[in-house]
């Protein structure tokens, strides 16, 4: 072996030793990655908390924008009616069919009316309406506010002495929180009506006994719990839609990502808060 070759081999070996990572390095790298992720998570939670605080504060502090609130009532409430109505109608119909075929095995067909009305009012109408509104309204809020962020319209509001939280966020949060219970109440009626239609015209129930069973089983807490859930879901959907839009990244990709995050985060929060509220009301 010549001296040159020997030197080159020694250099390569030294470099390999220098570049190779020890087990401790890998452990430290993993710890760093976990730490960065946790810090990122805390940053997001902190950001959302501050945003929610600002949003709620501006809901109660003047000036108010009644025209904008009214417009959001129409956008969120009126235009979501067909989606929520269709969802509730077909859910009630399917529920009647499924519970009939299930209960027929135990000769308990008479429980269909009870199952339909309790399932609809307590769970299905609020959760499904919440998820449908998250898809329709949450996405639209994130896209609209995100586009305003990207095109500097939100900065323009500030330079025109208008607080973006009061002008953009507060009306949406008010309308979301107040309109979802209204939608759910309508969904309750439509869903029970869907179950009634299938039960009477398809399963051969007597209209009088079906309605009396429905009326006898339902209690005030069944409806009220559903409406309280709806108000919470409406708040979550509007806050998540506004938060992700307000903090949207640049360009079409940023707005697209904000829209996705808004729908996904509000849907997950609806499911989690539904469990917690059910625990509070019925445990």
């Amino acid at each position: 072996m010549t001296d040159d070759t020997h030197n080159t081999t020694t250099e390569l070996t030294d470099n390999l030793v220098k570049n190779s990572k020890s087990a401790i390095d890998y452990v430290l790298d993993s710890c760093e990655a976990i730490g960065v992720t946790i810090m990122h998570l805390f940053r997001i939670i902190g950001g959302i908390s501050i945003f929610v605080f600002n949003a709620v504060t501006h809901v109660f502090l003047p000036p108010f924008y009644p025209r904008l609130i009214l417009r959001q009532f129409v956008d969120i409430g009126y235009y979501s009616l067909p989606v929520v109505g269709m969802t509730a109608l077909f859910t009630g119909m399917v529920l009647a069919l499924q519970s009939y075929t299930g209960f027929a095995r135990f000769n308990a067909e008479s429980a269909v009316a009870s199952v339909v009305v309790l399932s609809i009012t307590r769970e299905l109408a609020p959760v499904l309406a919440g998820l449908m509104v998250a898809g329709r309204v949450g996405a639209s809020m994130a896209a609209e506010i995100g586009t305003m962020r990207v095109t500097e319209q939100i900065d323009a509001l500030s330079t025109l002495s208008v607080n973006p939280f009061k002008y953009l966020i507060a009306p949406r949060v008010i309308a979301g929180t107040l309109m979802l219970p209204v939608l759910v109440l309508i969904g309750d009626i439509v869903g029970v009506f869907g179950g009634y239609l299938v039960s009477i015209y398809n399963l051969g129930f007597s209209p009088g006994s079906y309605l009396s069973q429905t009326w006898n089983i339902i209690e005030r807490v069944d409806v009220v719990s559903g409406l309280v859930k709806a108000a919470v879901f409406g708040f979550l959907v509007s806050v998540m839609g506004c938060y992700h839009g307000f903090n949207s990244g640049r360009g079409a990709q940023g707005v697209g990502a904000a829209t996705t995050y808004a729908v996904v985060s509000s849907s997950i929060l609806i499911l989690i808060s539904n469990y917690l509220l059910t625990q509070v009301f019925f445990s």
């Binding site: 305003m148 095109t151 500097e152 319209q153 900065d155 323009a156 330079t159």
Partner: peptide, 9 residues
């Protein structure tokens, strides 16, 4: 303020 893209509502 006049914004780069006008930033009209």
């Amino acid at each position: 303020m006049l914004f780069q893209g006008a930033a009209l509502f």
